[in-house]
């Protein structure tokens, strides 16, 4: 390539020269944690927490999801920009949920006969 100019503007495109290799041990530990948390999900289900059951199950799932994203998908060691990009997806999902729920909470909850 003709261009050997090192002053390039694309941010983060040449931040770290090689690829980050996540140690073998971390993968095994993360998988173990995921399996433990899966058992925890079922355990809490047996406790019959009533109204708390759904939030607890969701919370455990969120922790598991975070582990998968950070280590298996390597987001922890990735570009800041890629982290922001992936975060954006969840943010706009929340927007979709927020406004749809706002409408339905103030409408259907009051009129549904089912």
């Amino acid at each position: 390539m003709a261009n050997t100019n090192s002053q390039h503007s694309g941010h983060g495109s040449s931040g770290h020269g090689g690829h980050h290799i996540i140690p073998f041990q971390i993968y095994i530990k993360v998988a173990a944690a995921l399996i433990v948390l899966t058992f925890a999900t079922v355990f809490f289900h047996w406790l019959h927490l009533g109204a708390l059951a759904a939030p607890v199950a969701f919370l455990i799932a969120a922790v598991k999801a975070a582990l998968v994203m950070l280590f298996f998908m390597g987001l922890k060691y990735d570009d800041k920009l890629n982290q922001v990009i992936f975060g954006c997806g969840f943010f706009f999902l929340l927007v979709l949920f927020g406004f749809s729920a706002l409408d339905i909470w103030t409408r259907i909850k009051e009129i549904s006969t089912l």
């Binding site: 261009n3 100019n5 002053q7 390039h8 503007s9 694309g10 941010h11 495109s13 920009l81």
Partner: peptide, 10 residues
């Protein structure tokens, strides 16, 4: 993000 020429800042 990635293909701007040298000196072509955002």
């Amino acid at each position: 993000h990635k293909l701007r020429a040298p000196g072509m800042t955002m």
